[in-house]
Design a protein around this nucleic acid. Structure first.
Lengths: 146, 146
DNA sequence: GCTTGCCTCTACAGTCGCTGTAGACTGTAT
DNA sequence: ATACAGTCTACAGCGACTGTAGAGGCAAGC
């Protein structure tokens, strides 16, 4: 069980060094031991914890949700429905976002198909952006960044 | 053609007052006339321009892309292929994002379906986040926020 | 004229989840 | 001994806004 430096942890868990320090600063990673010269020292359990965070991020969970999940992980005797709830919420958000993006895709395709070339002045794409009146995306809330 | 204040423009174009000022600060809205007391004064052309920006944002275009589109709008005699290119690029990004989210949806569904209740210690959702080894989302680049 | 109450002004800090930079120190290989 | 990669702290920046503070402007009712 020899401790590893932050760089090795970074390689093992595939999370950048700077990001690890950031996670520490927001309380996701606890405060690691330090060597005599002040370098952070990690154990293999930290690789797992950090990988867990990375996987959860890849699944689109927010930092807050991940904090909750980590909290639950440390109480293995609790009922697992809290975990299920968080995952369900995440799925619902993904599906909502999917619906928005599908509407967007239809809209963009429609715009592009109507474009027959020519000058900007008569461009149907421009016209479509300008006259958005009967567009379904209008009904949705503001789109999060792509 | 009586000029309107920023609040009326905000109502007409459905863009918040603060956002209008922000757009001005990044050069999307030009510098409006001012009343004797320093209040911004807009014309109906500004409603159209601002609505155009809002529609483009709703379609997910980046600020840079919108700047380009506005630039093109002011030269109506140019060939419209530049507009088409920007829209195509946007569609491609939407489709890429859709593919990512669909993979995510499958993954989350799989996780949740495997959950049979019980204690956190044996939770399959947790296990799925932990052991992500054969997960397709791993192959994708980092996910943008939902 | 005066008050009420909303509108507008500027300037700057905060959001999220990091990333990048500067400048100094540490550890290891040759 | 030297070179070079790794690590440290502290802080600024990203995009696209949003929120705040504190001041001044404007129209309507009394």
């Amino acid at each position: 069980m020899k401790p590893m430096t932050i760089g090795r942890l970074s390689n093992s868990a595939k999370v950048k060094v700077t990001t690890i320090r950031y996670y520490e600063s927001i309380g996701l990673m606890g405060t690691p031991d330090r060597s005599a010269s002040g370098q952070r020292l990690y154990a293999s359990a930290d690789v797992e914890r950090l990988s867990f965070v990375r996987h959860a991020r890849e699944l689109g969970f927010s930092m807050d949700a991940i904090k909750d999940l980590i909290g639950l992980q440390t109480e293995p005797d609790q009922d697992c429905s809290a975990v299920d709830t968080i995952a369900q919420k995440q799925l619902a958000e993904v599906q909502k976002r999917l619906a928005q993006l599908e509407a967007l895709e239809r809209e963009l395709k429609r715009m592009i198909e109507n474009c027959r070339g020519g000058k900007v002045g008569g461009c149907q794409v421009m016209a479509a952006i300008n006259d958005h009146s009967e567009c379904e995306t209008d009904k949705h809330e503001r789109l999060k960044p792509l």
